[in-house]
């Protein structure tokens, strides 16, 4: 048995060392939240309010979806899917940690301050990610949309004028490519599998589609971040093309349902987010100021 390392996780420079994390899945050039925090604290990177606001959106989307997907662990249809969904959630959580750490740099806050000590109306995620998991088909429908969207987004954001957003995206884009492939493979299987799976997949898509449009809404913040942020509306055509292609291959159609009004980017959420946050934040809020 290996000797137990008795250093506290947060003690001095050792905490930033590669060996301090058991979850470093991409060794080598991975940009970790600790590195971003170090750059901001050292003054080598300055985060503007607008860039922080944008990073907060991306971080919240990833965090809320990771929280949702974590539910599947020990509940998936097959052991391989327990692993796959957990892995996707873990990737998203990694992206969230980086984006939130970066955003927090503008306000002197840590990733955990932002994740655990903001209220519902301060979250900037879209409604889609907070929707219930439903059955496996509904989760896959949501994964199809989010992974396709995020892959388009991060593919462009790697050219952002903001070096940190570009660096986080460069890591994330490789991972969401796998998420996209995973959802694609399942949409084909459920669409072409059995009568029941096809029916469930259609229902999953219908329940998901009202929340798709919000992903592509532009607003003033996006307008002020030309060259830094990706304009969401600019991704819509390619998104529609990719989705139509996958659904056609699966023998399914794009649902024709009205969009929900959205409002997540300005803190107006569906009823689901409050419950999700209550669970996520409960322990941290019982012990304010504690470290873990």
């Amino acid at each position: 048995m290996s000797p137990v390392d008795t250093r506290p996780a947060s003690a001095g420079p050792a905490a930033g060392h590669a060996s301090a994390s058991a979850t470093r899945l991409t060794p080598g050039n991975a940009l970790r939240p600790e590195d971003i925090a170090g750059q901001v604290a050292g003054g080598s990177v300055v985060v503007s309010q607008d860039v922080a606001g944008y990073a907060l959106r991306l971080g919240d989307d990833a965090l809320v979806l990771a929280q949702r997907l974590g539910w599947w662990v020990s509940r998936a249809p097959e052991l391989e899917e327990d692993m796959a969904l957990c892995n996707i959630a873990l990737d998203l959580l990694g992206h969230a940690r980086s984006f939130l750490t970066y955003a927090g740099g503008a306000w002197g806050k840590t990733e955990d301050d932002l994740a655990y000590f903001r209220d519902e109306s301060q979250f900037r995620s879209v409604h889609l990610v907070e929707q219930p998991n439903g059955d496996f088909a509904r989760t896959i429908a949501r994964q199809l949309v989010v992974s396709t969207f995020q892959h388009l987004l991060y593919s462009q954001l790697i050219d952002s004028a903001d070096a940190t957003l570009a660096a986080i995206s460069a890591k994330a884009v490789k991972e969401v490519k796998y998420h996209q492939d995973h959802s694609h493979q399942w949409v084909l299987r459920l669409g072409q599998g059995t009568e029941e799976s096809r029916r469930r997949m259609l229902t999953g898509l219908e329940l998901t589609w009202p929340y798709v449009a919000e992903l592509f809404d532009d607003d003033e913040l996006i307008g002020r971040l030309e060259g830094v942020a990706v304009r969401p509306s600019s991704l819509r055509v390619e998104f529609d093309r990719l989705i139509a292609e996958v659904l056609a291959e699966a023998g399914l159609e794009v649902p024709d349902v009205p969009r929900a009004s959205g409002g997540g980017r300005s803190g107006e959420h569906s009823e689901y987010l409050g419950h999700l946050l209550a669970e996520m934040q409960v322990l941290a809020r019982q012990h304010p100021g504690a470290t873990w």
Partner: peptide
């Protein structure tokens, strides 16, 4: 779902995934 920090949440998820 209730891990008290994001880092602990990530480590716990990785651990449960290892168990699978």
């Amino acid at each position: 779902s209730r891990a008290p920090s994001l880092k602990r949440k990530a480590i716990l998820m990785a651990k449960v995934q290892d168990e699978a």
